[in-house]
Design a protein around this nucleic acid. Structure first.
Lengths: 181, 181
DNA sequence: CATTTATTGAAAACCATTTTCAATAATTCT
DNA sequence: AGAATTATTGAAAATGGTTTTCAATAAATG
């Protein structure tokens, strides 16, 4: 299940001149024990650590996230929230893509070998060394639509990932507009 | 060529209670006259406007970008640089995807009906109202690799879109770097 | 033409992320 | 093992892209 033991993580780090620290071990463990399909922002991770009684600074959280993304242990995702999210990277996890509701941030994962193949082929065709490929689909989920998407312009409305902040809260007067979760 | 005349833009805006202003018209015009395949950050756009003698504030640039993304006139892209980029949105422009070098930010566009179809199908399957779908492939371009990617950890190195800022510049001593799942 | 209300610019505020720096801890060297 | 070296940490300050505030201005509407 978990591809990295303390020892293998240490080896991996040392090979590149990095060091294994309790903080790094703890952070990796959080990801390893995270329910499949979850992804954390730096802030999320920091919260979880605090809740577990760990006192790891936010700076260290950010640094570790970067390091592990750099090493390929974590995968960095740009979803719809304006900050990055991280999850265990393939091949430890199945490679997958995301369908995101820009209104409520619900995200659905799905796999597609076809997309992966297209990504690989495209990278090859251009002589690129492939690092990652992500299909991200932005849309409005059924629930959000029911809440009246087509009739209101909610506070945090986005289009194409864009958080739309209209000037005042005066868009209430707008004929089509709703609230947001 | 350009799908929006002043009049059609005005109509589009007014329909939703927005107004046509010289600033908005100017900004749209910049996008309409941009060489195909280019995409601008807010800062880029602001530069271009200054260079053209237009004096449009950065706030207005951001606001306009949001508004137009919201209205579907512009498409918002998350490439590798840490800030968003915008381009004219389909159907005015061919819908396409991006291959990005995480080291030098070179981006290559490519089309794929297959991907678009998969995106549409996936959104439909979940009952989503589709807004956009983007396959973004991250990798290292041939030139960057030649510049010795595998032997050094350059200043702006990223993995999975992540700008990797290692603590000192001391990672030069590193020996092997090229491998990654 | 008057009224209403969206938009603008400039500056201040935000906020996620980075960096600085001195203290600490993991490796390496002897 | 102990000393020396150098990566890592935490806390606080700094960044930098983006958003907001607010008074002035200018579209749209009547």
């Amino acid at each position: 299940m978990s591809p990295h033991t303390s020892a293998s993580l240490k080896a991996l780090l040392n090979k590149r001149g990095f060091r294994l620290t309790p903080q790094r071990q703890t952070i990796l463990y959080v990801f390893q024990t995270l329910p499949q399909g979850n992804h954390l922002s730096a802030e999320d991770l920091h919260q979880i650590l605090r809740r577990q009684g760990e006192r790891i600074s936010l700076s260290t959280v950010y640094r570790t996230l970067h390091l592990m993304a750099y090493m390929g242990i974590l995968r960095e995702l740009e979803l719809a929230e304006g900050h990055k999210h991280y999850e265990l990277n393939s091949p430890y996890t199945e490679h997958h893509h995301h369908l995101v509701c820009v209104q409520c941030n619900q995200t659905i994962e799905f796999k597609s070998d076809l997309i992966d193949r297209i990504g690989t082929r495209q990278a090859e065709a251009e002589g690129y060394h492939l690092l990652d490929c992500q299909l991200t689909i932005y849309g409005i989920c059924p629930e959000a639509m029911q809440r009246g998407w087509s009739r209101t312009l909610p506070e945090g409305w986005r289009c194409s990932q864009s958080q739309q902040r209209l000037q005042r809260s005066d868009r209430d007067s707008d004929s089509d507009m709703a609230s947001r979760g």
